[in-house]
């Protein structure tokens, strides 16, 4: 039992040491590539299973969840991906319809579109946000 407690204490102290390293480095300098301005929009890409010469794939892009039924865009797509420039901080969902003679596969994906950031010397650096919705057929 004692050895497990020792292991736990060592682990905890390691975490404390590691976290304290970041805060107290006086020589830390933010790189010139760090953009501290928040970027309000980015690319939302929908990946689709499309083969050249085949019928197009109907795709619907929703604002929010599918059930909210707020359609941002819908069309038949004749390529394997399509990209939209959309505001960050919102949730998006996409559906692709693969219709064959005997069944229809409705492929759905969705996510919250978050800021693309990294931390440098306790400063938040913003990068161009991108997200991919994977509506490719299994």
């Amino acid at each position: 039992m004692i050895k497990y407690l020792t292991f736990l204490v060592l682990n905890c102290s390691g975490i404390v040491l590691l976290s304290s390293c970041n805060k107290t480095d006086p020589n830390c300098q933010v790189s010139t590539s760090c953009n501290t301005e928040k970027i309000d929009s980015g690319d939302v890409t929908i990946n689709i299973s499309y083969e050249a010469g085949q019928p197009g794939v109907p795709v619907i892009l929703y604002d929010g969840y599918v059930e909210d039924n707020v359609i941002l865009w819908s069309d038949t797509v004749y390529q394997s991906n399509i990209t939209f420039y959309l505001p960050v901080g919102k949730r998006y969902a996409a559906e692709a319809y693969y219709v064959t003679s005997n069944q229809t596969i409705v492929a759905l994906d969705g996510t919250k579109f978050k800021d693309n950031t990294n931390e440098e010397c306790n400063t938040t650096c913003y990068q161009f946000p991108t997200v991919t919705l994977d509506c490719e057929k299994l």
Binding site: N102, Q103, T104, I105, V106, A107, L108, D109, D134, K137, L138
Partner: peptide
């Protein structure tokens, strides 16, 4: 993980 669930009227729903 992508999964496929058989739904009504020959519709298969694919989710992550």
């Amino acid at each position: 993980k992508k999964v496929q669930i058989k739904s009504e009227n020959n519709i298969v729903r694919q989710y992550r």
